[in-house]
C-alpha cells in the first residue's frame, strides 16, 4: 500500500508540473467544464419549466442528482480519463510492455498515471454545486445519508472506470482504434438522466448489463429515504462484480497481446 501511495505521489508531481506548462489550455479546460455544468443544469431548468415531476422526482431532487453526475464526471476526468484514453494506443502500438514489466499493478499504473489538475479545480466546483443544492433543499437529510451519498459517488466513479476498461479490452482482439469505447461514451448519456424515468427491459439492462444508473442515480436515492440495504447492496455488488469482469477480460486480452518487440 505504501509503495502505491509513494508511486501515486510521483504521478502527482509529474502531472502538476505538466499541467502548469500550458497555462492557456489549463484555463480553457476549466472554463470548458464550467460550461458543461451550466448546460446540464439549464437543460433540467428548461425541462422543469414544463413539468413539476420527472420520473417522480421534484426539481430539487433532480438538481441533487445533476450535481452527483457532475462530481462523477469530474472525478473520472481528474483521476482516470487521461490515463485510460491512452490504453488502446499502447495496445495497438505494442507499447504496453513498459507497463507490464513494472513491479506494480498494470491497470493501476495505466489508469492513474495522469492526474488532471484542471479537472481537479472542476471537481471542487462540482462539489460546491452539490453542497449548494443540498443546503438549499427543503428535504431533511441525516449526516450519514450525506456521507453515504458522497461515498457512493466515489463508488460510481469507480464503476465508470470499470465499464470503460471493459469496452476498451476488445482492442486486444480487433486492433481497432478504440474498441467499443466510443459506444461507451454515447451510451454513458443514459447516466445523465434520473433512473426513475427508465422502465422495462432498458431499466434492467442499465442496472445489470451496462450499469450506468449505478453511477449517480442510485447514490442520489440514498438521500430520498430509499431502502438503505437495497441501494448499498446494489451499488457495492455491481462494483465487485464488474471488478471481476474487468480483470478477467483484461487478463484474457493480455494473453492475446503481442508486443512490438516479440
Amino acid at each position: 500500500m505504501t509503495k502505491y501511495l509513494k508511486l501515486y505521489s510521483h504521478f502527482l508531481k509529474f502531472s502538476l508540473s505538466n499541467s502548469l506548462q500550458f497555462r492557456f489550455d489549463f484555463t480553457f479546460r476549466i472554463l470548458m467544464d464550467c460550461i458543461f455544468y451550466v448546460v446540464n443544469i439549464m437543460f433540467f431548468k428548461v425541462i422543469f419549466a414544463h413539468t413539476s415531476l420527472l420520473g417522480g422526482w421534484t426539481e430539487e431532487q433532480v438538481m441533487i442528482f445533476v450535481s452527483a453526475h457532475l462530481i462523477v464526471d469530474a472525478l473520472q476526468m481528474t483521476f482516470f480519463s487521461n490515463g485510460a484514453w491512452m490504453i488502446p494506443v499502447y495496445i495497438n502500438k505494442g507499447d504496453l510492455d513498459y507497463y507490464l514489466l513494472r513491479p506494480v499493478s498494470d491497470l493501476f499504473f495505466l489508469c492513474l498515471r495522469e492526474f488532471a489538475l484542471n479537472s481537479f479545480v472542476n471537481l471542487i466546483i462540482a462539489v460546491v454545486i452539490s453542497i449548494y443544492f443540498l443546503t438549499t433543499s427543503t428535504i431533511d437529510f441525516e449526516w450519514w445519508q450525506i456521507l453515504l451519498f458522497y461515498l457512493l459517488i466515489l463508488n460510481g466513479s469507480y464503476i465508470h472506470l470499470l465499464i470503460r476498461i471493459i469496452t476498451i479490452t476488445p482492442v486486444f482482439w480487433t486492433h481497432s482504434g478504440r474498441g467499443l469505447e466510443m459506444a461507451f461514451w454515447t451510451l454513458e448519456r443514459f447516466a445523465e438522466r434520473p433512473d426513475t424515468i427508465y422502465k422495462g427491459w432498458l431499466r434492467y439492462s442499465l442496472m445489470f448489463i451496462l450499469p450506468f444508473i449505478a453511477l449517480c442515480s442510485f447514490p442520489t436515492r440514498i438521500l430520498f429515504g430509499e431502502s438503505l440495504l437495497e441501494v448499498l447492496g446494489y451499488c457495492i455488488g455491481i462494483s465487485v462484480l464488474f471488478t471481476f469482469v474487468a480483470r478477467f477480460l483484461w487478463k484474457a486480452g493480455l494473453k492475446s497481446y503481442s508486443s512490438a518487440s516479440s
Binding site: H50, T51, L53, L54, G56, R193, T196, I197
Partner: peptide, 11 residues
C-alpha cells in the same frame, strides 16, 4: 422516449 413519456405522463 423515456424522458418525454415520463413528462407527458406526469402532466
Amino acid at each position: 422516449y423515456y424522458l418525454w413519456s415520463s413528462i407527458f405522463e406526469s402532466e
